[in-house]
Simulated assay, not measured.
Amino acid sequence: MNDTFLQACRGERTAHTPVWFMRQAGRYLPQYQKVRNKISFLELCKTPELAAEVTRQPIDIFGFDAAILFSDILIPMEAMNLDLDFHEGKGPIFAHPVRSHKAVDELVVPVPEESVPFVLETIRLLRSTLQIPLIGFAGAPFTLATYLIEGGSSKVFLHTKKMMFQEPKLYHNLLAKITACTSAYLQAQARAGAQALQLFDSWVGILAPCDYEEFALPYVRSIISDLRAVTDVPIIYFANNGATLTRLTTTVGADVLGFDWRLPIGDAVARAGNHAVQGNLDPLALFLPKEKLEARIKSMLTDSRDARGYIFNLGHGILPETPPDQVKIAVEAVHRFSGKS
C-alpha cells in the first residue's frame, strides 16, 4: 500500500511528496459527469456504490496518493431535521434558515449509523478496494452554521454576524448542536475505516481574529479533543482564507494544517511550527502553460522543504472548468520533482 500521505501527516520522512486535490472527484471529469447525469447530486451522495465509484475515478486516472470520500459537508446537517436541496447555479439551499430559538430547539443531534448509513457504507466499500489512504471529512461548525443561518451561500454573511453580535446566546446554542453532530459524525467515519479526517472551515476567513477566537475556535477544539479520545487517525484542519488566523489555528490540536494560496507555502511552513502542512497551489494556476505550471510546483516543493511533513494540494477545491490534462501534468510534476521513480 502507498501510505506516503499518512507518513507525511505524521511528520515522517517520505519517499516522495504525496499529492491529492480537494474536490478531486467531481465535475471537471467526464467520467464523473457520465455518472452524475443519471442521478441528482444528493442521490449520488446517498448511493454508496456510485459514491465509491466517483471517489475512485481520479485515483485510477491520475494516481493521487490519497482518496477523499465523495460526499458533501451539509449531509449531516440535513440529518439534523433540515430540508436541504441543491440548485444548479445556486448551490445548497435550506428552505427554512435557522434564526430563532425555536428553530435551534427543533434541531436533533442524529446518530450517524442511523441517519447517514450510506456515508459509512461508502467508506467500507472504498477501504475494501483502495490501495491508498482514504480521507473522511466534515465541515467545521462555523462554516456549517453560515449555511444554516443564511439559508445557503452568502457574500457578506449578514445574518450570521448579526446573530453572533446581537444574539450570542442563540448563536452559541446553535453551534453547540452543530458541534455535537459533527463530532459524532467524524467519530463514526473513523470507526467505519477512514484513515484520516479533514475539517473544512471554508468561510472562517470572514472573521476577525478576535471573533474567530470567540465564535469558531472553541468548537473546532472540542471536535478534535473528542476525536483524540477515541481514535489516532491524523486530523487535518483547513481554514480557507485564514492567513490572519494562523496564530490561533495552530492551537486547534490538528496534526496537519491546510493553507490556501494567499500565503506563500514557505511562510505557511514557518507559521505551522510542529505541524505538517498541506497546500496550497491556486486552483486557477492549473490553467498555466505546462512549463510555468511545472516551474511553480517545483518552486513550492523547494519552499516547503523545511516542513515537518508536506502534502501537496490545491489552496481550495478544483474548479469544474479545469482541463483534466492539466491535473495530470500537476500530479506527475509533484511526483517527478519530489523523487518518485
Results as ranks from 00 to 15, higher is better:
residue 11 G to K: 02
residue 20 W to D: 00
residue 24 Q to H: 02
residue 30 P to R: 04
residue 34 K to R: 12
residue 39 I to T: 09
residue 40 S to Y: 06
residue 41 F to H: 04
residue 41 F to W: 04
residue 41 F to D: 01
residue 46 K to L: 08
residue 50 L to N: 04
residue 51 A to D: 02
residue 53 E to T: 12
residue 54 V to D: 06
residue 58 P to C: 00
residue 58 P to T: 03
residue 60 D to H: 11
residue 60 D to Q: 13
residue 61 I to F: 09
residue 67 A to L: 12
residue 72 D to I: 10
residue 79 A to P: 13
residue 79 A to M: 06
residue 84 L to P: 15
residue 90 K to I: 06
residue 92 P to G: 06
residue 95 A to H: 15
residue 104 V to W: 02
residue 107 L to V: 10
residue 109 V to D: 10
residue 113 E to D: 12
residue 121 E to A: 10
residue 122 T to Q: 00
residue 124 R to I: 00
residue 124 R to D: 00
residue 125 L to C: 08
residue 125 L to N: 12
residue 126 L to N: 01
residue 131 Q to L: 07
residue 134 L to V: 07
residue 139 G to N: 03
residue 139 G to Q: 01
residue 140 A to K: 05
residue 146 T to W: 03
residue 147 Y to F: 12
residue 149 I to L: 00
residue 155 K to R: 14
residue 157 F to G: 12
residue 159 H to K: 13
residue 163 M to H: 06
residue 164 M to C: 07
residue 164 M to V: 04
residue 164 M to K: 08
residue 165 F to W: 15
residue 167 E to T: 10
residue 175 L to S: 11
residue 179 T to G: 07
residue 180 A to V: 03
residue 180 A to M: 06
residue 182 T to H: 06
residue 193 G to D: 01
residue 193 G to L: 01
residue 195 Q to T: 10
residue 206 I to V: 14
residue 207 L to D: 13
residue 210 C to Q: 14
residue 212 Y to E: 08
residue 218 P to C: 10
residue 218 P to Y: 04
residue 220 V to S: 14
residue 221 R to H: 11
residue 224 I to G: 14
residue 226 D to K: 02
residue 231 T to C: 02
residue 231 T to F: 00
residue 232 D to P: 13
residue 237 Y to A: 09
residue 242 G to D: 03
residue 244 T to E: 03
residue 245 L to N: 02
residue 248 L to W: 10
residue 249 T to K: 05
residue 250 T to R: 15
residue 251 T to H: 06
residue 253 G to A: 13
residue 254 A to W: 05
residue 257 L to M: 07
residue 258 G to I: 11
residue 262 R to A: 13
residue 262 R to V: 10
residue 263 L to D: 07
residue 263 L to T: 15
residue 267 D to L: 14
residue 271 R to V: 10
residue 271 R to H: 12
residue 281 L to W: 06
residue 284 L to P: 04
residue 284 L to Q: 11
residue 284 L to T: 13
residue 287 F to M: 11
residue 288 L to K: 09
residue 289 P to M: 02
residue 289 P to L: 00
residue 290 K to Y: 04
residue 292 K to I: 00
residue 295 A to N: 08
residue 297 I to D: 00
residue 297 I to F: 02
residue 300 M to G: 07
residue 302 T to V: 13
residue 303 D to E: 15
residue 306 D to E: 13
residue 319 L to Q: 14
residue 320 P to E: 08
residue 324 P to C: 10
residue 333 A to S: 15
residue 335 H to F: 04
residue 336 R to M: 11
residue 337 F to P: 15
residue 339 G to D: 10
residue 339 G to E: 07
residue 340 K to F: 08
residue 341 S to V: 11
